[in-house]
Write a protein that binds this DNA or RNA. Structure first.
Lengths: 204, 204
DNA sequence: CCTCGCAAATGGACGCCGATCAGTTCCGCC
DNA sequence: GGCGGAACTGATCGGCGTCCATTTGCGAGG
């Protein structure tokens, strides 16, 4: 075949990303090959390289979608809550739930290192930074007396801790440190460590 | 060539593991291939499959060594310290230092998921559990009034948090949440969150 | 000292992968 | 109606993990 013009470049890109995400979710990272993606969208492998620089470029596009999905999920969760403390809890639980509910997408985002020569692709990084900033903003409402530097340090450390719970949960290593696999438990413990016991006074 | 008997099976295994670790450290996970390992030890690829079931079996052997190295490193660090609080700090810093100092070994251990059909290989898991138990034991000395369940939960959560710092540090994503890349800062903040400010009274 | 069984090790084959590019096809403009 | 060039193909390359028929040579038995 030659020129078909069935879809625009942009459409083909979207199709490829969607197909790749489906393969990623259903079959895992190792099964996600350019050949499978090409076959899934009805084009040849060579054509994929007119849409993406290489495989890592496609994976980076996937990661952008994942980062967006996490951010929007957390955003939706907290906008119905008023108490900053509850917001942080909801974000933490939402983060862990996304990790355990979408392990392959989560792993690709955080554990698949892209080669450094494609570092000038700040889009994905910016979307993660947005996530950290969401935490920071929420934390600012909870601890208004903290200075900017201390606030940032605290938010980053807290979210790094939550991230660690997610990381261990996804790789199935949380049970190594204890019997339970109920990640919410670890979540609550982390929040308590950072922000004190839940609801210190109720109906008092 | 045929029978050489230059090295025993055990020796060949050790040579292969050592060679693989060198390649892992120097060139990264993606460059660690069975062919390179075979060439490095002066044998053919086919012979490697008389020593290991498959590549993941070799990687699992590498991970055992890494887990041992981390455990022994932390053990050495704390045995010269008496104060439990200082011990936990030393362990946390040591963990992060190992992660940032040996990123490829650390990534292979925690971020490379082995296929589930080789799950009946409890050796590597046991070595990680040992690490968690070391934390738990040290924490027990700091908070003697905690019950076993609460202790385990607290230790696991704390160590999961430290692990998260390491995970983000290794993947270079810690700067996303703040300017500094001085991981010790995050370490101290995490310890403070869990165990209160450092040295609450000095020379008082 | 010879020889021969069998363990030890080889090396090539298979099917997959990411990546490249000369060549083919056919759309749309003149 | 025809043609230039964009769109797309598919063959090709080197490398990968894995397997196994074949070859080699050590060492026990004569």
């Amino acid at each position: 075949m030659g020129r078909r013009n069935l879809h625009t470049r942009e459409q083909q890109r979207d199709m490829a990303i969607a197909a790749a995400e489906l393969i990623l979710v259903r079959e895992g990272i190792d099964e996600l090959s350019m050949r499978k993606v090409a076959q899934a969208i009805g084009y040849t492998v060579g054509n994929l390289y007119l849409l993406f620089q290489n495989q890592d470029d496609l994976l980076a596009a996937l990661n952008e979608r994942t980062a967006d999905a996490i951010y929007l999920s957390l955003r939706d969760r907290i906008e119905v809550l008023d108490d900053p403390r509850e917001r942080l809890g909801a974000m933490a639980r939402g983060y862990i739930e996304f990790a355990t509910g979408n392990p392959n997408r989560w792993r690709l985002l955080f554990e698949h290192q892209l080669p450094e020569e494609m570092k000038p692709r700040p889009t994905a990084d910016a979307r993660i930074r947005r996530l950290f900033e969401l935490v920071e903003t929420t934390l600012a409402a909870l601890e208004p007396k903290l200075k900017a530097d201390a606030l940032r340090l605290r938010a980053t450390t807290f979210w790094g801790g939550i991230h660690g719970i997610g990381s261990l949960a996804v790789s199935g290593k949380l049970s190594w440190g204890g019997r339970s696999s109920d990640y919410t438990l670890y979540c609550e413990e982390m929040i308590t460590a950072f922000f004190g016991p839940l609801k210190p006074r109720r109906r008092s």
